[in-house]
């Protein structure tokens, strides 16, 4: 009995020591903690407080009963979605399209930022920057109509050039062989300027003396890009890449929904468009939440693994 008490005392004594030390750290870092406080309160109130809504995914939501009162259905909502005969094909389409988007769409703005960084004429540089970022402000509803005209086999400018070069017109918008490429290219076209801004911000911190020194040493422009510009972009590229990989499961609903036609369902029907047609617009809250959760869990796994790889390669991960 006595021994136990003694042990407990010892334990608490150890704890007090630890707690005191912690308290000391808190005090020492009080300004940092103070800086953190408004943000933490924000997260508690606007993210953690409403988070109980996630359970809708495991319930059959009933308006009258509310979130807590609705009946539990276990994994039924997930089964409805995963068990659908089309799940395999829409899941594959999502991954394939997103993979292409990542493969081609991710490096494009980095390349643009590097090219812009090499422009010596400031007026030209600013003009290019400003113009290239404009398409970001147009919604896909509007752009879909524009691309339909541009890519039309009979009157589109693209096919005009193809025939000029002796090729046959291509029905880009309704051909399963081409449609994914159309999605990737149009998305790059829309976002390249906008996405390059963050890389430009990173590049603008490079000490100009480095370039001057390299030039004196006779390093070519390509060499300068490789040894000065790129390394300075690595931290931002890393974090952007981590999130981009996490987004592989998230298809671009606005783009695909506005651009696709039944003819390209086989190649372009993705999770979000499919679920949308499944009736999420018809107040299927539980199903929508389940699909969202499914995607987010996959996304989380992807982000964590990419982060782990990134940590091993460099020091700029999420953690």
């Amino acid at each position: 009995m006595a021994a136990i008490t003694k042990n407990a005392e010892l334990g608490s004594g150890k704890k007090t020591g630890k707690a005191q030390q912690l308290l000391k750290t808190y005090k020492k870092q009080r300004y940092l903690l103070l800086a953190l406080l408004p943000g933490l309160i924000y997260y508690l109130v606007f993210h953690y407080a409403p988070m109980y809504g996630v359970i809708i995914a495991f319930k059959r939501f009933n308006f009258n009963a509310g979130i807590m009162g609705s009946a539990w259905v276990g994994l039924e909502n997930f089964k409805t979605f995963l068990g659908s005969p089309d799940f395999g094909s829409v899941f594959a389409n999502t991954l394939i399209i997103s993979f292409y988007q990542l493969l081609f769409g991710f490096p494009a703005p980095i390349l643009l930022a590097i090219m812009l960084n090499e422009v010596r004429n400031m007026a030209f540089k600013k003009t290019v920057q400003t113009i290239s970022y404009l398409p970001h402000f147009l919604s896909w509803v509007v752009l879909a109509g524009i691309f339909l005209e541009l890519l039309s086999p009979s009157r589109g400018a693209v096919n005009y050039f193809i025939t000029l070069l002796g090729g046959e017109p291509i029905d880009f918008m309704t051909n399963n062989k081409w449609f994914r490429a159309v999605l990737v290219v149009t998305n790059i076209w829309k976002e390249i300027g906008w996405s390059s801004i963050v890389y430009l911000a990173a590049v603008s911190n490079i000490d100009t003396q480095l370039y001057e020194a390299a030039t004196i040493d006779g390093a070519s422009r390509i060499k300068q890009i490789r040894h000065i510009t790129l390394p300075s972009m690595v931290p931002i590229i890393t974090i952007m890449l981590i999130f981009a990989v996490g987004k592989i499961i998230n298809d671009n609903f606005d783009q695909i929904y506005n651009m696709y036609r039944p003819a390209v369902y086989p190649s372009a029907d993705v999770i979000s468009t499919y679920v949308y047609r499944m009736g999420v617009q018809k107040m299927e809250y539980s199903l929508a939440t389940a699909v969202g959760l499914f995607k987010n869990v996959i996304s989380l796994v992807l982000v964590l693994s990419t982060n782990a790889i990134a940590k091993r390669l460099g020091e700029y991960g999420l953690w």
Binding site: A49, P50, M51, Y52, G53, T289, G292, L293, N296
Partner: peptide, 8 residues
């Protein structure tokens, strides 16, 4: 990755 959604 985890959001409560519209209703909450």
């Amino acid at each position: 990755f985890f959001q409560g959604g519209l209703i909450p």
